[in-house]
Structures are given as structure tokens and as C-alpha cells.
């Protein structure tokens, strides 16, 4: 009962103090807001780049050409062997007639050329188009397939794919590093602002001590106030993420330029980011003020 009364009073005092020290509260809230906005933007950015790189990776495939001398049974054996490998996501077989049809459809030039062939003269090969599960191991998988009998050629975009992968990796690492750095900056900025706010209230803390407030008596309203300020500070960034990103997603269509340039779907992504922002705001607020008050307590 007593504990609830104390908690209730701490909450009431925290609210009162937010309004009575309004300019200081506003300073804390806006520093939380600004840094969290930047964090939100960088999270959105890195998630989208991640998304684009996944789309690009998904598009890579291994093309396997089968020797012309292979019989139907041998083709089936090859297919079986490929499908038994670890890294295989899908494996589609097309015989040379199907390949020719596909090529005809893809361009008029090819159409004219292919139609000039005799029926039995098709120089194309039977092929397997293979998607792998893990793009990093595409090289090993390709080598394995090469060893299968009656496989003449294996192509997977050698050279380009390695370069692209390393570029994407660098970008991803950079963005993750940036998000972490920004979160650290947020923690630093917010706890510093709170430190200044509390510095201006050290007299209050001193008086609390003199009239017999225990350390937890003193700390509690400040911690609740920190939580409250952090919460208020994260409201704008959260709204900006939810509405801003949804609007961006609806109005910007980069996939006209390239099929890979797609914005990631807003849900549940924006809600996850909102939750992260809320947690950063409140936790940093709480611990920032708890840590700053500690300096003025005699422990």
C-alpha cells in the first residue's frame, strides 16, 4: 500500500516536473526527437538496401548446359544429382526446343534467326536453370555441378557476382555500423541533455535528502520523468516512420527504373522500427536520468 502510494506520488511528481520545468523538458524531448529521427531514417535506409541486395541475390542463377549426346535417362540422372545437392533452391529443366521458343519470344532478331534453322539443326543445348539458397556458396555449387557426367558447361556470372557480393557486403556493414553509431550518439546526446536538466535541479535533490528522502525516494520521480520524456520524444519519429514511410511507399515507384529498386513493404517493418524507437527513447531516458541523479546522491 505504502509502496503504491510512493509510486503514485513519483508518477505525479514526474508529470508535474515535466510541466513546471517546461523549457528544460522541451530541450530533452527535442534532442530525443531529432536523434531518433536520424536513427529512424538510417534504419529505413539500411533495411531497404538490404532488401534490394536480397532481390539482386535472388535473381542470380546457375545455368547448366547438357552435352548433346546425353540420353533422356542421363538427363534425368543429372537432374536428380543436382536436386540432391545442399545449396539448391530450385532447378528447372528446359530441352533445346523450349530454349529456342523462349529465345524467339525474347527478341525479333532471335526469332528470325531461329526460324531459319532446320528442325533437327537446333544448335542449342538442353539446360537447367538453377537458383541457389545461399549466394555466397554459388561458386562451390557450380564446381560440383561441373563434375557431373555429361554436363558440358556451367555458367553463373563468374567475376561479376563476386564483385557485387563484396560491394553489397561493404554497404551492409557500413549501414549497420552507422545505425549502431547513431544509437550510441542518441544515448550520449540524450543522457547529456538530461544531465544538464538534472544539474539545474541539484538543489531540489539536496533538499530532498535533507528532509529525509532515501536514495530510491529521490531517484524514482527522476527515472519516471526520464521515461516520460523519452516516450514523448519518440512520438514524432514514430509517426514520421509510420505515415512518412507508408506515403513514400505508395507514391514512389522506383521499380520503373529497375526491377531491383523496390521499396520494402511497410508492414510489419514500420511497426518493428517504431517499437525499436520507442524502446531506445524510453530506456535511454530512464537510464540517462537514473545515472545523472546518481551523481548527486551520497551512496
Amino acid at each position: 500500500m505504502k509502496l503504491f502510494r510512493l509510486l503514485g506520488r513519483s508518477i505525479r511528481d514526474a508529470f508535474k516536473s515535466v510541466f513546471r520545468n517546461f523549457s528544460l523538458s522541451l530541450a530533452s524531448i527535442s534532442s530525443v526527437t531529432i536523434t531518433l529521427l536520424i536513427v529512424a531514417i538510417s534504419m529505413v535506409l539500411s533495411y531497404n538496401i538490404e532488401n534490394i541486395s536480397t532481390l539482386i541475390k535472388k535473381d542470380f542463377s546457375i545455368v547448366v548446359f547438357v552435352e548433346n549426346s546425353a540420353t533422356n535417362d542421363e538427363v534425368k540422372t543429372i537432374e536428380k544429382k543436382i536436386k540432391n545437392m545442399d545449396n539448391i533452391d530450385s532447378c528447372v529443366y528446359e530441352n533445346k526446343e523450349q530454349v529456342a521458343e523462349a529465345w524467339k519470344k525474347s527478341s525479333d532478331t532471335f526469332k528470325v534467326i531461329i526460324e531459319s534453322w532446320d528442325k533437327n539443326e537446333n544448335p542449342l543445348a538442353d539446360t537447367f536453370s538453377i537458383k541457389v539458397k545461399n549466394i555466397e556458396n554459388i561458386k562451390e555449387t557450380a564446381e560440383q555441378i561441373k563434375k557431373i557426367e555429361k554436363v558440358s558447361l556451367v555458367r553463373y556470372g563468374e567475376g561479376i557476382i563476386e564483385q557485387l557480393l563484396s560491394v553489397l557486403e561493404v554497404i551492409e556493414k557500413f549501414l549497420i555500423g552507422m545505425v549502431i553509431a547513431l544509437i550510441l550518439v542518441t544515448i550520449f546526446l540524450v543522457s547529456n541533455t538530461i544531465k544538464i536538466t538534472i544539474f539545474s535541479r541539484r538543489k531540489e535533490i539536496e533538499i530532498m535528502r535533507l528532509v529525509g528522502a532515501s536514495n530510491s525516494n529521490i531517484r524514482m520521480p527522476f527515472v519516471i520523468e526520464g521515461l516520460f520524456l523519452g516516450f514523448l520524444g519518440s512520438v514524432v519519429p514514430i509517426l514520421a516512420t509510420i505515415y512518412g514511410y507508408s506515403a513514400l511507399y505508395n507514391f514512389v515507384h522506383l521499380d520503373n527504373i529497375s526491377p531491383f529498386l523496390q521499396l520494402a513493404a511497410p508492414t510489419p517493418f514500420i511497426y518493428i522500427i517504431s517499437l525499436i524507437l520507442l524502446l531506445i527513447g524510453t530506456i535511454v531516458g530512464m537510464f540517462g536520468s537514473a545515472g545523472s541523479v546518481r551523481k548527486y546522491l551520497k551512496i
Binding site: 535528502r209 536514495n215 551520497k298
Partner: peptide, 14 residues
């Protein structure tokens, strides 16, 4: 001890 000072302060006025 510092942490217990509040117990004294509650029994006196300053």
C-alpha cells in the same frame, strides 16, 4: 552509513 542517513533525517527537523 551514507545510504542510511535518511533514517536519521526523518527523525529530526532542520
Amino acid at each position: 552509513r551514507n545510504r542510511k542517513v535518511y533514517k536519521l533525517r526523518r527523525k529530526l527537523g532542520i
